[in-house]
Design a protein around this nucleic acid. Sequence first.
DNA 1: TAAATATTTAAATACTTATTTAATCATTAA
DNA 2: TTAATGATTAAATAAGTATTTAAATATTTA
Lengths: 113, 113
Amino acid sequence: MSMGSPWKALADDNRRQILLILKKKDMIPTEIAKHFNFTLAAVSTHLRILRDADLLTEKKLGKNRFYSLNNKRTLDMIEFFEDVYDFKLNSLKEYVENKERKKMRLKNEINVT
Amino acid sequence: MSMGSPWKALADDNRRQILLILKKKDMIPTEIAKHFNFTLAAVSTHLRILRDADLLTEKKLGKNRFYSLNNKRTLDMIEFFEDVYDFKLNSLKEYVENKERKKMRLKNEINVT
DNA sequence: TAAATATTTAAATACTTATTTAATCATTAA
DNA sequence: TTAATGATTAAATAAGTATTTAAATATTTA
């Protein structure tokens, strides 16, 4: 219901893991639960917290509820980092560009071989 | 001593506030404490947690201990976001560039007037 | 050396969070 | 409608966290 803190949502290791798992594809709670040692009920609670923090969205399809990533809050978090590390903006930019270059290189290598 | 989680360190509102305060200049705990309603002992604990998470560093100068921002961990956090929101890398880059443009514009305005 | 200042640490307490079990709700298939 | 499947919610508990007070440590100054 009420908007939860994305910082608190992300402070839990299992919840960050859930986000990483959902990166690959949207999933239903039962499927997510298979990746963990705790109960479906616990997964359900984690999903609620991630949803409340606007990091996930839920799509109801019949009996199933598909959870998917929602990146709106990402920029809020980055903005906070920028506020703190204002003077480091350039190195962040370089970092992102390097990652892109690396990805490009990989793509070219695959095309060549 | 042991390395603490930057996610847990950042999950606390007051600790994020401390980082924002230290953005302006390095400070000693007593000075930081003036910004809050809780005791110096509590500030000291928060500083330890931020230090353990590698978000702050301490420099001892005589009787004083100056705390300052340490941005090494920032990239770790961004990296996590990138893992999750891989496909959004471009928009992150645009975001950073826009911020830079805004800053430039501001600087020019000041020079002109 | 003693007093003053700056800070941390320890123990206690109150609060919050994660997880479980059991009960409940919603949808589909028989 | 009944049984089966997918998921949430509530109550209980255990573990973790924030804050306080009081005591302890380190450095400087008188």
